[in-house]
């Protein structure tokens, strides 16, 4: 049996984990499961694509960095895409979620996110059609790294980027004042107000961070696989499963669970067949709900 699936699983799991951070933060702080989170991911990927194309049109083609498939425009575009996705999330919150939040029925907000998800996704199909697109047509050579595993330069670079983002997020949540405030707010919103935390600021930070990371995950999928309007929808179940398996509100949990799910999916592809891959997240989700609904690092619901 080839061990390649371990690498594939790690890559796949990184993307799930990055997305799941946003899901878990939204759930812990805004208190609803956002069905539109996958679509933020897809919008981020397309926004970045638009920016890359824009830069190419203005500045001409740039040489790739080292052995990677992309050059500096991709990095600039990725940052721009993350900002744009953040703005999209803030706009959605302002138009829709904030208004419903004021009425205080959490499940209605879930339903609204469901409607928004459908509108966002189909809007992408309208704008870009449903056929897949790519950031780069370049074919990368995979290098053997031993044990029969082969890896492309892009994969290495993106694993490093994921690691950096996750570490950065962890430091942000544990060391920065805003991160502490976000954790405090998720534990007890009323007390958070008593100690002087501005809820509106926390809500904004949550959307910006969740959307930026969703965009990063979308870009990774775009670089390593392809960009499609449905890419976010396909990631939604694994992301939810990772957020729940990791324990709602736990960022290390979401990332670890993302890796677990990614690896399980890769193993399933190898052992059973690629067509059953999407069922893995569901099987894990059901197992968690029956055995340990609070997840790996979760705390019992108050």
């Amino acid at each position: 049996m080839s061990l390649q699936f371990i690498l594939d699983g790690l890559i796949n799991g990184s993307m799930i984990g990055l997305g799941a951070i946003g899901v878990t933060l939204t759930y812990a702080i805004l208190r609803f499961s956002n069905f539109a989170h996958g679509d933020l991911m897809a919008w981020g990927a397309y926004a970045t694509l638009a920016l890359v194309s824009g830069i190419a049109a203005l500045a001409g083609a740039a040489a790739p960095i080292g052995a990677l498939s992309f050059g500096w425009p991709m990095i600039v575009a990725a940052l721009g895409g993350m900002a744009l996705t953040g703005l999209l999330a803030l706009a959605l919150d302002w138009l829709l979620f904030a208004r419903l939040r004021d009425r205080g029925q959490a499940i209605i907000i879930v339903m609204a996110s469901f409607g928004a998800s459908m509108a966002l996704r189909s809007l992408l199909e309208f704008l870009f059609t449903s056929s897949p697109v790519y950031y780069s047509r370049a074919i990368q050579m995979a290098m053997p790294v031993g044990l029969g595993i082969r890896v492309t330069p892009d994969q290495i670079a993106l694993l490093v980027v994921t690691l950096a983002l996750v570490l950065g997020m962890h430091l942000f949540m544990t060391r920065s004042q805003t991160g502490r405030e976000m954790r405090a707010y998720s534990q007890n919103p009323a007390l958070a107000r008593v100690v002087g935390i501005d809820v509106a600021r926390i809500v904004r930070a949550t959307w910006l961070i969740g959307a930026a990371l969703a965009c990063a995950a979308g870009i990774m999928v775009g670089i390593l696989v392809q960009i499609r309007p449905l890419m976010g929808l396909d990631m939604l179940l694994p992301m939810f499963a990772a957020a729940i398996l990791g324990g709602i509100g736990s960022i290390p949990g979401a990332v670890l669970a993302g890796l677990i799910i990614g690896l399980s999916e890769a193993a399933t592809v190898q052992l059973i067949g690629a067509e059953w891959r999407a069922a893995v997240a569901f099987a894990i989700l059901m197992a968690v709900l029956f055995i340990r609904p609070m997840g790996l690092f979760g705390v019992a619901e108050r």
């Binding site: 829709l96 609204a112 409607g115 928004a116 459908m118 509108a119």
Partner: peptide, 12 residues
């Protein structure tokens, strides 16, 4: 696709 956008928006 636009038809579906319309349903989503209508729901919201």
């Amino acid at each position: 696709a636009l038809q579906i956008v319309a349903i989503g928006v209508m729901l919201c």
